[in-house]
């Protein structure tokens, strides 16, 4: 998802080759921080890349000053046996600057929530997840097959088809082809364009079948019809989704989902720690516990520059 986000918003200047990903669980990370800095770590200046590299790649230590952006993206995961409201709140209030110590984004209930594609804004604003104690796979099922998910998966689908159906084994070649497909934006010349991409680049049997199949898939996607590339189209989708989630975040925070339409939704007004507290309260109720469905990691975009949503 991040890779797609960075492709759609090149203004962030994030080169995928410079991205360093470290997978962990938030409580494990919490323990690693305490181990390195002690119980009063919250009073100190944490160097997160140092903490994680020391553990995972002790021969190749990395430091905060090596990174322009540090993002911590985690799922809420109330069902985790290590879940601790106190710890997660501490982390949320500490990690609030991507350019410095790092910015923590917690997704409710998990990162896939950005794929929610409701019929109306109101439907989305009131949408809750009623099973805070169930593992993520249950939620995943719910967002399966939304329009957004299909679009997000499109590059992977292209790649899969090239690999499985037409046996293109060269990864670089596949990636090249996929990128070319995604850059198409002219419905009138679509058939010819697809033909030349396949003929020029690949040596596959049953070319006609392949051309037909890709033509079908690409023309079904809306982007070529709108004369924009896949990334331009996705950028617009993301812009809409981000604005929707920002409105919901403010709504949760103010206990009011029916905000006046003139109320200015600004990233600066969103308080992620307040939202976390309210999510904690809602999800631990004895009767009808729930979590507001909300994705915060997409706020990377407006946090970087509010103009990117225009």
């Amino acid at each position: 998802m991040f890779s797609l986000l960075f492709d759609c918003f090149p203004e962030l200047h994030i080169d995928k080759d410079d991205v360093w990903i470290y997978g962990t669980n938030i409580y494990q990370l919490y323990n690693d921080i305490v181990k390195e800095y002690g119980d009063d770590w919250i009073e100190t200046d944490i160097d997160l890349p140092f903490v994680v590299s020391k553990k995972k790649y002790p021969n190749e230590l990395r430091y905060k000053s090596d990174f322009i952006n540090i993002f911590l993206v985690f799922d809420y995961e109330r069902q985790d046996p290590n879940f601790s409201e106190e710890k997660i709140l501490q982390m949320q209030s500490y990690f609030k600057d991507a350019t410095d110590v790092g910015q923590l984004y917690i997704n409710y209930p998990m990162v896939e929530s950005y794929q929610e594609f409701p019929d109306s804004l109101d439907e989305f604003l009131s949408k809750k997840w009623q099973y805070p104690m169930k593992p993520g796979k249950y939620y995943k099922k719910q967002v399966k097959n939304t329009i957004m998910q299909e679009y997000v998966e499109l590059p992977n689908r292209f790649d899969e088809i090239l690999f499985e159906r037409f046996h293109v084994t060269d990864q670089t070649l596949r990636t090249q082809c996929v990128r070319k497909f995604l850059s198409l934006n002219n419905a009138d010349t679509l058939f010819g364009d697809i033909t030349s991409i396949l003929v020029d680049n690949l040596d596959i049997t049953c070319k006609d079948t392949a051309i037909g199949q890709f033509y079908d898939m690409i023309s079904r996607g809306q982007y070529v019809k709108k004369e924009v590339t896949y990334w331009q189209y996705m950028r617009q989708m993301f812009q809409t989704i981000i604005k929707m989630h920002m409105r919901k975040a403010i709504g949760i925070q103010l206990h009011n989902m029916n905000l006046n339409s003139e109320y200015e939704i600004e990233i600066g007004r969103i308080e992620l720690d307040t939202i976390l507290k309210l999510q904690n309260e809602a999800s631990q109720k004895a009767m009808d516990p729930f979590i507001w469905i909300l994705n915060t990691c997409i706020f990377i975009i407006p946090e970087y520059n509010g103009e990117l949503l225009k």
Partner: peptide, 9 residues
């Protein structure tokens, strides 16, 4: 291209 804010280091 980042919007610089008061809190930035």
């Amino acid at each position: 291209t980042r919007e610089l804010r008061e809190g930035h280091n």
